[in-house]
Nucleic acid binder design. Structure first.
Lengths: 134, 134
DNA sequence: GCATTCAGATTACAAACGTAATCGTAGCCC
DNA sequence: GGGCTACGATTACGTTTGTAATCTGAATGC
C-alpha cells in the first residue's frame, strides 16, 4: 500500500511541500514568526494570490508538520518547523537521484553546459572543492 | 477549453512531465522506439505498475507532445520527442532557480554537506572545472 | 450590549496525477 | 467464421495542488 507511512515520526516535515507551499515557506524562512496577513504581504503580490489562498497554504503546511503556530492574541503566528537547509538538501538530493542516478557530477556538467554557472559560482565551487579535499 | 496556450510552439515538450511520466520517458530514452508492452517490461516491475498504467502515461506523454508514435502493425511504437538532456537541463535549472536563487554554487555546497558527493564526483567536477577555466 | 470586523476553519471546485478497469476492434487460432 | 487476444481509446476514481469563497466566533468600536 504505497501508504506514505504517515511518517513525521521524527518530528517534522516528511510530507512533500508543493510549489505554492514552498513560496510560503520561503517567506517564513526569511522571517518568522509571521502572521498570515504578514506572509501575504510578502508573497501575494508576487504570486497574484489573495489572502485566503495564503491561509489555505498555511493550514496545509501546518497539517503537514512543516509549520508551527503560536497564538498571538486572536490570530496565529507561524514559523517553520523544518529548516530550509533540510528542505533544500532533500530536494537537491531527490533531483540528483532522479535525473542523474545519484551522481552529482553529471548535474554539474549539465549546469556547466547550459552556462548556468557564473564565474563566481566556479570560483566558489573550486574553493569548496579545496575544503573537501582536506 | 482551458487550453494551456497549447504551447509546444517551439517544437516539443513544453508541458511539464510528472514523476511517473518521467519513469516512462527514461525507458524510452534508454531505448526507442518501443511498444507499450516493451516499456512496461522496463518499468512495471520496478514501479509496481500494471500495463494499463503505462498506457495511460504513454497517452498523456503523447498528448503533451513529449512522445511520437509510429504505427507498427496494429500497435504503436513510441519514441521521445524531447531530448533527455533538454529535460534534465530544464529541471536542473528549475531547481537551482527555485532553491538557490539561480546560483549553482550553493547547490554544490549543499550536496557537499550532505555527503552526496562521491570521491569520483569530486574528481570529475574538478576535471570539469579545469575545462571551464580554459 | 450589539453590530462590525477580522481571524481561523470549513468547504469548494477544477486541473493534474497516480493508478487502473473497461470498451471496442482488428487480427489470429483452429 | 467465431471466439480469443492483444492493442489503443475511453472512462474512472481517489488524491494533491492551486486558488478561493463562505462560515463562525471572538475582539472592538461606540
Amino acid at each position: 500500500m504505497t501508504a506514505k507511512t504517515s511518517a513525521n515520526a521524527g518530528g517534522a516535515g516528511a510530507e512533500r511541500i508543493s510549489d505554492a507551499e514552498y513560496a510560503v515557506m520561503e517567506a517564513l524562512w526569511r522571517e518568522s514568526p509571521q502572521s498570515a496577513a504578514n506572509v501575504c504581504d510578502a508573497v501575494c503580490k508576487e504570486r497574484g494570490w489573495s489572502i485566503p489562498t495564503v491561509k489555505t497554504l498555511l493550514s496545509r503546511l501546518v497539517q503537514k508538520g512543516a509549520l508551527a503556530t503560536e497564538p498571538d492574541g486572536r490570530r496565529f503566528l507561524y514559523s517553520p518547523l523544518i529548516e530550509r537547509s533540510d528542505y533544500v538538501g532533500t530536494e537537491s538530493k531527490r533531483l540528483v537521484e532522479r535525473l542523474f542516478g545519484g551522481r552529482a557530477a553529471p548535474l554539474f556538467a549539465h549546469l556547466a553546459e547550459n552556462e548556468a554557472l557564473t564565474a563566481d559560482d566556479i570560483a566558489e565551487i573550486e574553493r569548496l572543492l579545496q575544503e573537501l579535499k582536506k
